[in-house]
Amino acid sequence: MGHSSGACTSTTKLPEVEIKWRRKANSIKNALSRGTAATAVNFVGGGESSFIPEAEYRARVAEELRQHLEAEVRAQIYAELFEQQRDAGKGQGSSD
């Protein structure tokens, strides 16, 4: 919050739906700050309703974030296992 994505030092990526929302909100904010009289807001939704309750939105964002974090943890575990296997036996003499 309060900085651009280029200045972000966090290693946790925002969910894609949040990134899209922030892009649109910032484009509207920037257009208004430039003095643009009217700003077009285009929203393309799918399904029966374009809007969902806030609780459902938060649940979707949380699920996306959970999946992303699980993937990061799995990647870290695999990297550590690979390193352990690579280093196994080093400095312990002949393996025959």
Rank of each mutant, 00 (worst) to 15 (best):
K24E: 12
E72G: 07
G45S: 09
E56P: 00
G45N: 05
G89Y: 01
E72A: 11
E70W: 06
F51H: 10
E54S: 10
A71S: 08
T11H: 10
F82G: 11
A71R: 06
E56Q: 07
S50Y: 02
H68R: 08
E63H: 05
N42E: 15
I28E: 02
V17P: 06
I52H: 03
Q67P: 04
A88Q: 02
E83D: 12
K20P: 01
S95N: 01
S27F: 11
A40R: 10
G93P: 01
V73Q: 08
E18C: 15
G47S: 01
P53F: 07
G47Q: 00
T36C: 12
N26W: 08
E83T: 08
A62F: 05
S27N: 14
V41L: 12
R34C: 09
V17N: 12
Q76W: 10
G35L: 03
S33R: 09
G93D: 03
E64G: 05
G93A: 05
E18R: 15
A7R: 15
K29T: 11
L81S: 00
D96W: 06
T36Y: 07
K13V: 14
G89L: 01
S4N: 10
E54I: 12
V61H: 02
N26D: 11
T9Y: 07
L14D: 11
T39A: 10
S50Q: 09
L81K: 05
F43W: 08
R86G: 02
F43I: 14
G2P: 03
N42L: 14
W21V: 05
A7T: 11
A7L: 15
F43G: 02
S5W: 10
K13Q: 14
R58L: 15
G46I: 05
T39R: 06
Y78T: 10
E64L: 04
R60M: 06
N30R: 14
I28T: 04
S50L: 10
